[in-house]
Amino acid sequence: MAKAKAKEKPRHGGWTKRNKIGFSYVCIWIFGFLVFQLYPFISSLIYSFTNYDIFHTPEFVGLDNYIRLFTKDQEFWNSMAVTLKYTFITVPGKVVLALIVALILNRNLKGINFIRTVYYIPSLLSGSVAVAILWKVLFMNDGFINSLLNAAGLPSVKWLGQPSMAVVTICMLEIWQFGSSMVLFLSALKQVPQSLYEAARIDGASKPRMFFKITLPMITSIAFFNIIMQLITALQNFTSAFVVTNGGPNKATYVLGMKLYTDAFKYFKMGYACATSWIMFVVILIITLVLFATSKKWVYYDN
């Protein structure tokens, strides 16, 4: 755990024969990074200033793609709004639910491991087409969920047909898969020193007070990490929107990932799609940086 110390000693050990061999191992990754990550990353930026379409030689078009995205393309703004809506519903929903369940499961009961396993199963299937199809069937107009509502005396909801509900349906699919966040929280909760609780108990602190004063601060760093990784995933969502609702109805679930896919692989406006992807990247970056900037205020550092 505290290995960080080792790195602070000498900055590096020079180019000894041994280090050269070590470097050659890392070179495997460097090669991969250059070819499959850095090169695509930079070409994506370059393409975003061209009319690249895979058929013809790309021509430089300056800022045209970006200008069009920002000033002309209403679909882009719709997609941006849908994506942000989706992200800001699923990420907090998932993290909060994961935390609550982790708190409940964080005790030594017989068979608790089995229960944890059960809660993790939906996450196991995350992103799979199988689950997306299942969701579609469950939430159809005369699907099981509506039958359930009717049985309870409630009216049917047009889960997939009504634009405002379609986003909710997709979000529910995502939130349902909170298992991995839960496991993360569980491991963080295990690391909270029991001595803190004991001390608090002696002082006569109430349970809610202990939660807010001890538990919550101690797991903020995990929560922070969790939120960032979930954000990056959520902003790029594609499969559930594509399989469950195909972007509809009336573009209500046409997330940025889908717009990108359609522009690039259906209309072959690859340069344009690259520009979209860069805006997506900048949004991810801004949200992450804002979180980092504010993290000092709410993330607890234990050293």
């Binding site: 755990m1 505290a2 960080a4 850095l38 990353f41 930079i42 930026l45 370059i46 963080a188 690391q191 101690m218 760093s221 995990i222 922070f224 990490f225 960032i228 970056l285 992450t288 940086l289 980092f292 993290s295 993330v299 550092y301 234990d302 050293n303």
Partner: peptide
Amino acid sequence: MKKMMKAASLLMAGALTAVSLAGCT
């Protein structure tokens, strides 16, 4: 705990690297 924080701070550094890479190109 510490490991997580370190990951987070490295992530931050990574984000900055990414920004500067973007700047170069």
